[in-house]
């Protein structure tokens, strides 16, 4: 069975060549490693945290950051019912049309609408933010090394620049940002968003909740994925076991 060993070796070497090159990712500070409910083979999203994170997004992040891949109807996954979703959507005004007279008109949002973007275009968003582009957040947790930890790290990483470091006008010091200079003003303050449950209303908790919410937004089917994965894995394990027995029985006479 030397060949199996060789095979395993080759596979290991091949796989080790693939590990994402995160070491050089950023010259920012080492990201914090929090323990999240969605980690692990059967991790799930904490619904209460998702709802709080959504509230923080709506009241704070959403002022500059769009999430155009997420729809109000998707909020069902956060534990809201149809009427609540309708009410949330209806708070926003959308331009629709043209109507029979060829005019564009305004109407309240519907569950089938994507999250209302704060700016009409990328250019407008940059113009309003000193030339810095507030990235769309639909996929942010997957579009940054470190995912939820990165988001949490940035939101809690603001501080004063150490001696000898110059922060340009209109920029801020953030220990977690690659290069440490960030264009976004510190967005969160303790007590800024009021929670309906008794979670603490601190920057730390806000950051955790937003990170959870954005992780869900970037990977809404994660729970399904893990569930199906466990089933598929167990099925294949038994199948492979049966095949091993079949093969062994069959070959017993040959060897």
């Amino acid at each position: 069975m030397m060949s199996i060993k060789k095979l395993a070796l080759v596979t290991c070497v091949a796989l080790s060549a693939l590990s994402p090159a995160s070491a050089r990712a950023a010259e920012g500070g080492a990201l914090p490693h929090l323990s999240w409910s969605f980690e692990g083979v059967n991790g799930t999203y904490d619904r209460a945290s998702l709802q709080r994170g959504f509230k923080v997004y709506r009241e704070v992040c959403g002022a500059c950051h769009s999430m155009d891949k997420v729809y109000y109807r998707d909020l069902e996954a956060l534990g809201y019912d149809e009427d609540q979703i309708k009410a949330v959507a209806a708070e926003y005004t959308f331009i629709d049309g043209p109507n029979d007279e060829g005019e564009m008109y305004e109407r309240p949002g519907r569950p089938s609408d994507p999250f209302k973007a704060p700016y009409a275009s990328r250019e407008q968003s940059m113009y309003a933010n000193n030339g810095a582009y507030p990235p769309d957040m639909s996929l942010l947790a997957k579009a940054r090394h470190g995912g939820a930890n990165y988001i949490y790290g940035i939101l809690t990483g603001y501080g004063h620049a150490p001696e000898g470091h110059e922060v340009p006008e209109g920029k801020y010091w953030n220990t977690m940002m690659p290069g440490h200079i960030i264009a976004m003003a510190p967005p969160l303050q303790d007590g800024q968003v009021s929670y309906d449950d008794n979670a603490s209303q601190t920057v730390d908790q806000y950051a955790k909740d937003v990170a959870t919410f954005l992780t869900w937004a970037s990977e809404p089917h994660m729970e399904d994925r893990k569930r199906v994965g466990i089933t598929a894995f167990l099925f294949l394990l038994v199948f492979t076991g049966v095949m091993y027995t079949v093969k062994k029985k069959l070959w017993a006479k040959i060897h």
Partner: peptide
């Protein structure tokens, strides 16, 4: 089967 097990682990 063995190969697919690895494939499933990564995919899911």
């Amino acid at each position: 089967g063995v190969f697919l097990l690895l494939y499933v682990i990564v995919t899911f």
